[in-house]
């Protein structure tokens, strides 16, 4: 790429720059159009729909203004679904990120089985969630599941993982942790590989042991990656849908009815697309708010 001489203010770019801009613009236009239509556009459409009582099947639309938002604030079912989502997010992130960091530390070292561990950890990430959820539902089955069989071998009575109200959400969370662990580990691994070895050598010279090196070198320098992993994990946690749909349909006793599943029910089972759109906007704002909070808390210089 030729280096452009400094241009005077207001002067037109050179023909070669214009050509480069045109080429770049052409390449960017397609994904940008996709982004605008299928991401920004749909959010905009959801925002518009949220102001209507809108039945997808009959096509009837009645303007209700902020009525759907007021209704959401008073809807015990929706508020419960938010609580379930938060419980799920706390459990998932609280277990997944420390575990992912530990695995990333393991994968970083060059040892005999590092490749096997990397493959094993990342394999669930690339497996479709429907397949994962179906397999785990079978494994959890108290009669024919492998977990029940193992428990029976250990003379422990089989647990009804997906039907027992106390176990359903933790069981579901375990599946999503297993599925997403590899992705978080990969983020941490990228971060770990970016830390210059010199810092560790300096810390060693200062007499720091492995634990102190981890606390004073690794963790602070992983802040940006931790933030990224946290934001992604939070967004994923608030968007969880497939395992709920496949494994529990929100039950038992609404203990796994997360906000996205509640939205799905309202939109596609109860035909309340306007109300479901309002719920989606509320959840979107919550995710944005949480992301902003994370960025503020973990701000690095």
């Amino acid at each position: 790429m030729p280096i452009e001489p400094q241009r005077r203010r207001g002067a037109l770019p050179s023909p070669s720059t214009r050509r480069a801009l045109l080429t770049a613009g052409t390449f960017l236009a397609v994904p940008l159009a996709g982004l605008l239509i299928f991401r920004v556009g749909t959010v905009g459409q959801a925002l518009v729909n949220s102001l209507y009582q809108y039945n997808l099947l009959s096509g009837t639309r009645v303007f209700v203004g902020v009525g759907n938002y007021v209704r959401a604030a008073q809807d015990a079912g929706f508020l419960l679904s938010l609580l379930v989502t938060c419980q799920y997010a706390v459990m998932k992130i609280g277990v997944q990120l420390p575990l992912a960091l530990g695995i990333a530390l393991l994968m970083q070292k060059s040892w005999r089985w590092a490749g096997v561990v990397r493959t094993a950890v990342y394999l669930p990430v690339v497996t479709p969630f429907v397949v994962v959820a179906t397999l785990w539902a079978l494994m959890y089955n108290p009669t024919i599941g492998i977990i029940a069989a193992l428990l029976r071998t250990a003379r422990v009575p089989p647990l009804n993982f997906l039907v027992d109200p106390r176990l359903a959400l933790p069981s579901l969370t375990a599946v999503t942790i297993w599925k997403d662990l590899g992705f978080s580990a990969l983020i941490f691994l990228a971060g770990l590989q970016g830390i210059p070895q010199g810092y560790y050598e300096a810390a060693q010279v200062d007499g720091a042991g492995p634990w102190r090196q981890f606390w004073n070198v690794t963790l602070p320098l992983l802040k940006r990656f931790t933030l990224f992993a946290l934001v992604i994990a939070t967004i994923n946690a608030f968007q969880v849908y497939t395992p709920v749909y496949v494994m529990t349909q929100g039950g038992p006793l609404d203990r796994t009815k997360v906000a996205t599943y509640y939205m799905y029910e309202r939109a596609f089972l109860f035909y309340q697309m306007g109300y479901a759109s309002a719920l989606a906007i509320i959840v979107l704002l919550m995710i944005l708010g949480l992301s902003a909070l994370y960025f503020r808390l973990l701000r690095t210089e």
Binding site: V163, D164, P165, Q249, G250, G251, P252, L253, L269, F270
Partner: peptide
């Protein structure tokens, strides 16, 4: 039908 299935699931879970 969706709500009835939900009630049945809850009853089966001991509610």
């Amino acid at each position: 039908s969706t709500l009835l299935s939900e009630a049945i699931t809850n009853v089966s879970a001991g509610a």
